[in-house]
Design a protein around this nucleic acid. Structure first.
Length: 309
DNA sequence: AATAGGTGCAACCGCTATTGC
DNA sequence: TGCAATAGCGGTTGCACCTAT
């Protein structure tokens, strides 16, 4: 029994991708668009598993991916969201445009976890760590996902609220007193001699493609403007965080695509679509104010979850 | 200079969820 | 409704590179 392998294991190449393989993959996707991954190895002649192709594309070759250089804001966002959502990296990644879940997961495991541990050692009142916070989303059984979805909506709103306030007030995050750190993390000092680290060159190849065929596929347009992943579950409020991360100057750019938010998080009035960011902020802030801002909202989330279950 | 240990990250593995027939 | 195929996700591993001795 058991599922058959996603592809024939015999003759499947493993390990790091070569530039040639990347170019083949990119060329193929350029022509056919992402999707139907099973067909990719056969059609391209790549001796790679379809999963491997998809992973390579979504994590490295997809346009709009930013590598390295986690900013302090991004760091704080990850910490917030991890506290709220647990180790749901894909969900967290959806709030950080241009970052992949794999990237965030690695960054958490290699940097933030240690950092938090260290800080926790310094401060007994520090926030709950992964180990604690990740416990609460666990009890998800059949019939409960709707409730969790609602919880997630609420928590995402909180996270967004917090993130937006981060922009306005550097001290808004009582949760994490970031140590002095430049925008360039230490790991950047590591030389990027391996090919995998230079795949942005490949990604650049795609720019021409996207310019040539702006609506050649929905994926290209999505990923170009907001760095969304191709997965439906990841199509979320990234626009909002683009606005948050980069100083949006025009109202048009600050449009909020709540429809895509709902792709991830359930139903919402369609009148929310194309809502200017200021309204969204107001909505979030009002909502937060209505619930009381005192204390860290993790407690709120936990209480809420306890009520739900 | 050699090497042992640590670190960071790309890629893989195994599982679940979703989709299509 | 059931099943197979596929997509997506999170945990883990393997390896290249860095640093200390």
């Amino acid at each position: 029994m058991g599922r058959p392998p996603c592809c024939d294991k015999i003759g499947v190449k493993k390990g790091p991708w070569t530039p040639e393989e990347d170019i083949i993959l990119v060329s193929y996707i350029q022509e056919h668009g992402p999707g139907n991954w099973r067909a990719v190895p056969t059609n391209t002649g790549l001796m790679r598993c379809s999963k491997s192709c998809r992973l390579r594309w979504t994590n490295y070759l997809r346009p709009g991916i930013k590598r390295g250089d986690f900013t302090q804001d991004e760091e704080k966002m990850i910490i917030h969201l991890q506290a709220l959502l647990g180790n749901r990296w894909a969900a967290i990644a959806s709030y950080l445009p241009q970052r992949t879940d794999n990237d965030i997961k690695n960054y958490w495991n290699t940097h933030l976890k240690k950092k938090l541990k260290r800080l926790q050692g310094q401060d007994g009142n520090f926030i709950q760590t992964t180990e604690n916070s990740s416990e609460y989303p666990k009890p998800v059984s059949k019939g409960q996902w709707e409730r969790r979805l609602q919880t997630d909506i609420h928590m995402a709103k909180k996270a967004l609220c917090e993130a937006l306030s981060l922009d306005k007030s550097a001290t808004s995050s009582s949760l994490f007193a970031a140590p002095q750190q430049t925008e360039t993390p230490a790991h950047q000092s590591k030389s990027s001699t391996t090919y995998a680290s230079s795949t942005e060159n490949i990604a650049r190849l795609l720019e021409n493609w996207m310019k040539k065929s702006p609506n050649s596929s929905s994926v290209s347009s999505e990923s170009t403007c907001v760095g969304l992943s191709s997965s439906p579950s990841e199509g979320t409020i990234s626009n909002t965080f683009v606005s948050f991360n980069s100083d949006i100057t025009t109202e048009q750019e600050a449009k909020f695509d709540a429809a895509s938010l709902m792709n991830n998080e359930g139903k919402m009035d369609t009148e929310m679509t194309q809502m200017p960011l200021s309204l969204l902020e107001k909505w979030l802030l009002d909502d937060a104010a209505a619930q009381g801002q005192e204390g860290y909202f993790m407690d709120m989330a936990l209480r809420e979850t306890a009520d739900l279950f």
